[in-house]
Design a protein around this nucleic acid. Structure first.
Lengths: 130, 130
DNA sequence: GCTCATACCTAGGAAGCCTAGGCTTAGAAC
DNA sequence: GTTCTAAGCCTAGGCTTCCTAGGTATGAGC
C-alpha cells in the first residue's frame, strides 16, 4: 500500500468495524489489520485521534472498562454513528465505482481523451514526449 | 460524494487519464468529470497544482500549444509516468479490496470483533450505549 | 463595451494522518 | 527486586494535500 491513500476514509473504516460490536483502541487496530488482510496496520497516532474526532461528532460513545487490572476505553456506535456508517459505506461505493471508471477507461490504447469540444487538436502538440 | 476522499488518489487519476493521450488542464478536468460519470468535478486549484507536482516529479512533461489563438499547456506522460500510472492502479486495486473487506465484514450482525486475544471481555462494558 | 467561456496561475488556509515521543500497569525473565 | 516486554492510553508538531478565492488574458456573442 502507500502513504496516505486513506485520508478521508479512516473514519468510515473505524465506524465499519464498530458496527460489529464495541471495541477499544488497540483492539480496533488489530481488527482493522485482520479484516483488511494485513493491508491496514495503523499507528496509534492515527486511530486515537480518529476515535476522539468521532466521539466529538457524536458518532461513537466511550466508556471505561477494567480488564485484568488494565483500563480500557471501549467505544461503541451511537444511533447517529450507525447511520453515518451506512452513509459512508455507500459513499465509498460511489467513490470506488467512479475511480474504477477512470482507471478502467484507459485500457484500450489509443483513443483520444477529448479536449473539450475543440476536437482534432490534441495531436498537434509541440515538444511533448517521453 | 464528499469532501476529500480523494486525497492521495488525485495524482493517480490524473495519470490514468493521461494514459489515453496528452491533455491540457481544462480538458483533463472535463475528462475526469466525464469518465467518472460526473462524480469528480475538480476545481482548477486542485488540478493545476497536481499537474505541476507531477511534472516536478518527472512523471509528466508539458509543452505549449496554440489552439484558436489560445495558449494551452499540454501534458503527456513520461516513461516514468507510465510506469507510475500502472503502479498506482494496482495500488488502488489493493487498497480498494482492503477497504471492501473491512466494509463487507460488518454485514452479519452480531459477531464479536475480537479484542486482541483476551476474549470474552468485550461484552462487559460500562456506560456505553446508543 | 460588456459578458461569458476558455485557459492558465498562485497564495493561503484547513484538515488529516503520521512521527515521535510520554504515561501506566501486568507479567515474565533473571 | 529489578528489568524488560507487551498491552493500553494519550498528545504535540509537522508534512502533505486539497480547496477557496482570488488574479490574468483571449475570443465570441450581443
Amino acid at each position: 500500500m502507500s502513504q496516505d491513500m486513506m485520508r478521508g476514509h479512516l473514519d468510515g473504516l473505524v465506524l465499519a468495524v464498530l458496527t460489529t460490536g464495541p471495541s477499544h483502541g488497540y483492539g480496533l487496530i488489530d481488527a482493522l489489520r485482520d479484516r483488511s488482510g494485513g493491508a491496514f496496520d495503523l499507528p496509534e497516532g492515527s486511530v486515537y485521534p480518529a476515535l476522539h474526532r468521532l466521539e466529538r461528532a457524536g458518532l461513537v460513545a466511550s466508556g471505561w472498562s477494567e480488564v485484568a487490572g488494565r483500563r480500557r476505553r471501549v467505544y461503541s456506535l451511537t444511533a447517529a454513528g450507525r447511520r453515518s456508517a451506512e452513509e459512508r459505506r455507500s459513499e465509498w461505493r460511489s467513490f470506488s465505482a467512479a475511480v474504477e471508471r477512470v482507471f478502467g477507461g484507459g485500457e484500450a490504447g489509443g483513443a483520444a481523451v477529448g479536449t473539450t469540444g475543440t476536437t482534432g487538436t490534441t495531436g498537434a502538440v509541440g515538444a511533448v514526449g517521453a
